[in-house]
Amino acid sequence: MGSFISKQSGFDPAKDISDLTGKVIVVTGGNSGIGFATLQYLARQGAKVYLGARSEQKAKAAIERLHKEGLGPRNGEVVWLNVDLSDPRDAKKAAEEFLTKEKRLDVLGIEDTMMVNHISPFVFTRTLLPLLTKTAKEPNSDVRIVNVSSDAITCMMPDLARYGLSKLANALFTKQLQKKLDADQVPIIVIALHPGSVNTEGLLRDPILVMPIIGPIARLLFSVIFLTPSQGATAPVFAAAAPAVRAQPELYKAAFLQPSAKIGRPTNPDAQSAELAKELWDTTEEILEKLEV
């Protein structure tokens, strides 16, 4: 699982995170792609990881694959959590179900259009925040919230504009949530990140790949240019578990990580706007109030 990205950053997600035994982590979208690879790294270091996914069949297949590929050296536990982010009411139910199962939550990783990428994760995080806060106040705790954004926040192509706006919302949500936690003196670190352009299972279902002549060329280019899911997990794993983050909390609070796990700036300057972050937060709460969530 070594990679060019890991060499660039100096961080190897397979080796450079501490023993996570006793830690409880939730990763949404963990049944494939970057989420799967992230979950795999964390479970191999001993964490109990909840795989948040809508499909039980796909979740069980992912868990079977994890066991087949091995969860050593520390053999953590992977548990399916029924998370449907297509509706904020279902997202809240999923979070409430989790609260009946666990007494702590050390890391919340959100990796999944505006409803799925912002509003439902907002509800999911808000519902779990009291438990995250409780865990953060325990001795020697290290609680983090990781939001997977993207450099697609600058994309205004018709097919990707909505996705880009939702990822901008992820970055703004990170900024405003960190501000609120700091104001309440809660020692939780919130990080947004761009995992890079990753050759995921979803990308491989692109219709262009089955076209004659163009398809084989596209598959070759994807394999050369794009990162593997394991490489794409470098920044998420760093954000979730690298000791350097807790060692320098003021540096990493509300930071935006690049694929190499180095701190960078979002390509859209709006992602740095404190005013826009607050406006988004307030607007989201107004929408949820109308939905009675």
Rank of each mutant, 00 (worst) to 15 (best):
V26A: 12
V27M: 13
V27F: 10
V27N: 12
V27C: 14
G30S: 14
N31G: 14
N31V: 12
N31M: 12
S32L: 01
S32R: 10
G33W: 00
I34W: 00
I34P: 01
G35D: 11
G35Q: 11
A37V: 08
T38C: 04
Q40R: 11
Y41K: 07
L42A: 03
A43F: 02
A43W: 03
R44I: 02
R44E: 03
Q45M: 15
G46C: 09
K48V: 03
K48C: 04
K48R: 12
Y50K: 04
L51H: 08
A53H: 12
R54P: 01
R54Y: 03
S55F: 08
S55H: 09
K58I: 09
K58L: 13
A61T: 12
I63M: 08
I63L: 05
L66A: 15
H67Q: 14
H67N: 14
H67S: 11
K68A: 15
K68H: 15
K68N: 15
L71P: 05
G72H: 05
G72C: 02
P73Y: 11
P73L: 11
P73M: 12
G76F: 00
E77Y: 14
V78K: 09
V78R: 08
V79Q: 11
W80Y: 13
V83D: 10
V83P: 06
D84Y: 07
L85W: 06
L85G: 12
L85H: 09
L85F: 07
S86A: 13
S86F: 06
R89W: 01
D90R: 15
A91K: 01
A91I: 02
A91V: 00
K92L: 03
K93V: 11
K93T: 13
A94P: 01
A94M: 03
E96I: 00
E97V: 04
F98N: 03
L99Y: 05
K101Y: 06
K101Q: 12
K101S: 06
L105W: 00
D106E: 06
L108A: 01
G109Y: 04
I110F: 02
I110D: 08
I110Y: 01
I110P: 00
D112V: 09
T113A: 15
T113E: 14
M114F: 13
V116P: 00
V116G: 02
V116S: 08
N117F: 06
N117C: 08
N117G: 09
